[in-house]
Amino acid sequence: MTAAKAAAEILARAPGVRPRVGIVLGSGLGGVADRVEGATAVPYAELPGFPVPAVEGHAGRLVLGTLSGCPVAVMQGRVHAYEGAGFAALKTAVRALKLAGCEALMLTCAAGSLRREVGPGRLMLITDHINLLGANPLAGPNDDAFGPRFPSLTDAWDPDLRARLKDRAAGLGIPLAEGVYAACLGPSFETPAEVRMLSVLGADAVGMSTVPECIVARHCGLRVAGVAVITNLGVGLSDEPVDHDHTLRNAASAAADLERLLTGFLADHVNGWTAGDEAQP
């Protein structure tokens, strides 16, 4: 099994580090990995079955060590459905983190806001999602070793972890919006009509990632939380340009708040952030 081989390689590369939390860093947000202490960086290309990103802003390496005292595995970059390689590598990566010891997965991404009051530079806690990718990473034969054929996505974005992130953001004075994230295939940005449609459907932000990782993680029993970095307003809501360079610039401007939130959250709960919760399978 490729995921098991990747997990074994992860543990072999950083002896003594058994990660409890996996973190996926989105476009322009790779700086969080620089905060990892005792870091061992492993290129994805050296991990069996791992994805190799081809998009600017995604370094393509796994950083192992501790963050605020919590053992972590930080995925510095991801692949996207629009790259055309399917979901096999994404499933391998998420499941390898589970087998290596992770109990939860923290997802981050760059996103466009569908609400004018939540503009570029803000953080949005993901409360739910809408999958408009046209595909599901669990389609095809089910691997019963990881999860059921028909997994529930009720509370896919863990309510308890969300509450703890909200508390930490408030303590740090970081404005933290909340909302529903819609995942579209891309790579083209949305049209003004599509932005209006997404708002009608109940989405608060839109991007091209994150949902597949959430689905795979919940299928294999990982708890999931997510924070979107708002890099722009949706087309038609602002005169600002919407392009990838713009996304990277605005992601960098919000990265400091994201780093403070993640490191503070992990520090708060390093000795029992899952205490009192049901044991995960």
Score class of each variant (00 low, 15 high):
Glu103Pro: 05
Arg164Ile: 01
Ser68Asn: 08
Phe265Pro: 00
Val42Trp: 02
Thr66Asn: 07
Val206Thr: 00
Ala183His: 03
Glu46Tyr: 09
Gly49Lys: 12
Ala96Tyr: 01
Asn271Lys: 15
Leu165Val: 12
Gly234Ala: 02
Thr154His: 13
Gln76Glu: 15
Ala3His: 14
Val94Phe: 04
Val63Ala: 12
Ala12Pro: 09
Leu114Ile: 03
Phe150Pro: 13
Leu233Glu: 00
Leu64Gly: 03
Asp243Met: 02
Ala12Phe: 06
Leu25Thr: 05
Pro141Gly: 12
Ala183Gln: 03
Gly16Met: 10
Asn131Thr: 14
Ala225Met: 07
Ser238Glu: 08
Arg218Cys: 13
Pro187Ala: 04
Leu125Ala: 08
Asn136Arg: 10
Leu261Ile: 05
Thr263Gln: 11
Ala279Ser: 15
Gly60Ala: 07
Ala88Glu: 14
Ala54Arg: 14
Ala183Thr: 02
Gly30Cys: 05
Arg20Pro: 00
Ala54Asp: 13
Ala39Lys: 05
Ala59Arg: 15
Asn142Leu: 07
Ala256Arg: 08
Pro120Tyr: 00
Arg115Thr: 07
Glu9Cys: 15
Asn131Arg: 13
Ala96Ile: 06
Pro137Lys: 14
Phe50Asp: 04
Val195Leu: 09
Pro192Thr: 03
Gly221Gln: 10
Gly264Ile: 01
Gly69Asp: 12
Ala54Ser: 15
Asp239Leu: 11
Gly38Met: 07
Glu103Cys: 07
Cys184Gln: 08
Val235His: 01
Val242Glu: 00
Leu25Val: 08
Ala228Val: 03
Cys109Gln: 11
Leu176Ala: 11
Asp245Ile: 01
Asn136Pro: 07
Val21Met: 09
Pro71Leu: 02
Gln280Glu: 12
Glu213Pro: 11
Ala182Ile: 07
His219Leu: 12
Lys5Arg: 15
Val21Tyr: 04
Leu67Arg: 03
Ala177Pro: 09
Val32Pro: 04
Ala193Leu: 08
Ala205Leu: 02
Pro43Met: 06
Ile23Lys: 00
Gly272Asp: 07
Ala279Gln: 13
Ala255Gln: 14
Asp144Val: 13
Gly226Arg: 05
Glu213Ser: 10
Thr2Tyr: 10
Leu99Pro: 06
Glu178Val: 03
Pro120His: 02
Ala59His: 11
Glu213Val: 09
Gly264Met: 06
Leu105Gly: 00
Gln76Lys: 14
Ala93Lys: 05
